[in-house]
Design a protein around this nucleic acid. Structure first.
Lengths: 143, 143
DNA sequence: CTCGCTATTGCGAAAATCCGCAATAAGGAG
DNA sequence: CTCCTTATTGCGGATTTTCGCAATAGCGAG
């Protein structure tokens, strides 16, 4: 919630036009504490304001992902979830079991980035990479 | 190609029924050298044999992923690609510009996996993690 | 404040993916 | 080999996500 205006300013500076639809979407996702599907978001918006076309929601989400303001995770099952990216770049640890998303410092990936560069001349960007696995809780449940 | 029968045997032992459709799909994907979408696979199959329903392709792919015989990566743009798991797990380096996919040795991520474990008790699985970035070619074009 | 360029929206339709259900067939038992 | 159980297929249709295109509307210039 304190980030809405920062985000909007950032987008404006990068040459994006600030439309009412974008403001609404940005506010809604910034206020959310957990990850949302595009449909969730649409529902949220519908209650508080004019309906926004679902295609616009998808396009805005795609843009926000590209600009690094939110993150998108494909959790399988043909559904993607979106979440605010409030504390700067980081890795996303997504639990395969419960779907929970944890943030990890992306600087841990520095040496890996260097190795990839040396071997493939590929400039890897770990600033919002999604890593699947099992969270501590679900590991216990497995036994 | 040498793995088809191993795969089929494995599935049989795990209680799956071996249908002609499954054999065809397993052979097609095992023979492929690169990543395929479900549609690619359908096309491949159509040329050599009876048409198989696309839903069956998806269901078989999902099952093979669950059984760990193939891997699935979401490369964004609403498309998933599937690849044999025979050459061992690997990282997917996806170029943001041209969309090309490169494979990298996943053992490079070992130390990162350990760090994540120490800091978050999260059991990360890098066996088919997708890393976005810029490939060597597109880096040159950027200048 | 008005004008003009062009980014953005909404709409309808196309893709991609998944799902329910009846019909079929794999594989074990006899 | 035949029969039975039930996993699997094909089909049609639902859902999720994307796309093309005409209409709309930000926002910078004047």
């Amino acid at each position: 919630m304190p980030h809405c205006h920062t985000h909007i300013e950032k987008l404006r500076q990068r040459g994006y036009r600030i439309t009412p639809q974008r403001e609404i979407i940005i506010k809604a996702i910034a206020h959310s504490t957990s990850h949302l599907t595009a449909e969730d978001l649409l529902e949220l918006i519908r209650t508080s304001s004019e309906a926004i076309n679902i295609a616009t929601v998808y396009r805005t989400l795609e843009m926000l992902v590209e600009e690094g303001l939110i993150i998108r995770s494909d959790l399988g099952q043909g559904r993607a979830v979106y979440a605010p990216h409030q504390h700067g770049p980081h890795l996303h640890l997504v639990c395969r079991q419960c779907g929970e998303v944890f943030d990890a410092d992306h600087t841990m990936a520095c040496s890996l980035r260097e190795q990839i560069w040396e071997q493939h001349h590929f400039e890897a960007d770990f600033s919002h990479t999604t890593v699947f696995g099992l969270c501590a809780l679900c590991q216990k449940k497995e036994e």
